Simulated assay, not measured.
Amino acid sequence: MPTLLPVFYLPPISWFSVFLKEDNEIVFEQFETFPKQTFRNRTNIYGANGKLSLIIPIDHSGKRVINELQVSNRDKWRSLHWKSIKTAYQSSPYFDYYEDQLEEIFNFKENSLFQFNLHALKIIQKILKSEKEFTFTKEYIRKPEQLNYREHFSAKHKSPFEMPEYFQSFSEKYGFLEDLSIIDLICNKGPESMTYLKNVRPI
């Protein structure tokens, strides 16, 4: 089934359940106008004080089309995000195993948000041993024929997906936090991540 997906920064688990579904033919949207406060430039991880949002700062120079958008290099966000991820997951069962690959995500120096997200996705696919292929839109279509997920994943509201609980490093303090970044699943479930993703269902 042709499925239109936005390109996210270290996407939530629900996004990956759609992306990796066998009968979904994935088309990435590359001509949409950048919407604020979405997972296109943010990801949620499980920090020592609960849910922590990591947000990539955007260079607001006038360009708003997602594949033209540039990131701002103020605040050294790459090193800060990597430090936050390392601090959050260094005690998780599989962080040491994937640390070098995860760190490689932040060695990408181009300033394109779109290309940075794709670079991160390719590394996550390697970790998951996924060879899922995808194509890109050729223009922006307001009412596409494909199954449209462009506005389906909200950074503000409860996830519209049902997912089984799994062990998380700080769950004894704050309980299970659902639908965090794929990083959370990988660091806690390791090789079982792909099996887990198959059990994530829309509510």
Rank of each mutant, 00 (worst) to 15 (best):
33 T>N: 07
3 T>N: 07
156 K>I: 13
181 S>E: 03
106 F>K: 00
85 I>P: 01
79 S>M: 09
3 T>Y: 08
64 R>P: 12
190 G>P: 02
28 F>C: 03
177 L>N: 02
153 F>V: 07
152 H>I: 01
18 V>F: 06
157 H>P: 00
174 Y>H: 12
82 W>Q: 09
68 E>D: 11
160 P>N: 09
33 T>W: 06
162 E>K: 13
50 G>T: 09
36 K>S: 11
146 Q>I: 00
165 E>K: 15
61 S>A: 11
21 K>S: 11
179 D>W: 05
47 G>L: 07
16 F>W: 15
20 L>V: 11
108 F>A: 07
85 I>H: 03
182 I>E: 00
40 R>Y: 09
33 T>D: 03
135 T>I: 13
38 T>P: 03
194 M>W: 01
13 I>V: 15
95 F>Y: 12
147 L>K: 14
18 V>C: 10
42 R>H: 02
94 Y>E: 02
16 F>Y: 15
97 Y>R: 13
113 L>A: 09
176 F>D: 01
139 E>N: 08
14 S>C: 05
147 L>P: 00
112 S>E: 01
105 I>K: 01
50 G>K: 11
57 P>A: 09
187 C>L: 06
104 E>M: 13
28 F>A: 04
150 R>T: 09
106 F>E: 00
117 N>D: 06
25 E>Y: 12
116 F>Q: 04
3 T>G: 04
174 Y>N: 05
83 K>F: 09
173 K>R: 15
154 S>P: 00
194 M>T: 12
89 Y>P: 01
108 F>S: 07
127 I>H: 13
70 Q>K: 15
74 R>G: 08
53 S>F: 03
39 F>H: 10
17 S>C: 10
71 V>T: 08
107 N>V: 07
156 K>F: 10
53 S>Q: 11
177 L>I: 15
7 V>G: 01
87 T>S: 15
164 P>N: 13
124 I>C: 08
44 N>P: 02
181 S>K: 02
58 I>L: 14
41 N>F: 05
117 N>I: 13
157 H>V: 11
172 E>W: 05
192 E>D: 12
15 W>L: 08
185 L>T: 04
169 S>F: 11
63 K>W: 00
40 R>M: 10
190 G>L: 07
110 E>N: 14
113 L>K: 01
54 L>I: 03
74 R>S: 10
182 I>K: 01
176 F>A: 04
82 W>A: 06
36 K>T: 11
134 F>W: 15
137 T>S: 15
33 T>H: 06
108 F>N: 04
60 H>N: 12
4 L>W: 02
68 E>N: 11
43 T>S: 07
115 Q>D: 15
82 W>L: 10
111 N>R: 14
32 E>V: 09
133 E>Y: 02
177 L>K: 06
166 Y>I: 00
184 D>L: 04
32 E>L: 05
93 P>L: 12
130 S>N: 04
21 K>T: 09
62 G>Y: 08
37 Q>V: 03
180 L>A: 06
16 F>H: 14
79 S>K: 12
146 Q>H: 08
122 K>S: 10
80 L>G: 10
141 I>R: 13
150 R>Y: 08
156 K>L: 14
13 I>G: 00
185 L>R: 03
162 E>M: 12
167 F>H: 14
56 I>A: 09
187 C>D: 01
98 Y>W: 07
155 A>Q: 04
117 N>V: 14
141 I>L: 05
175 G>Q: 04
84 S>G: 03
22 E>Q: 15
193 S>I: 07
125 Q>R: 11
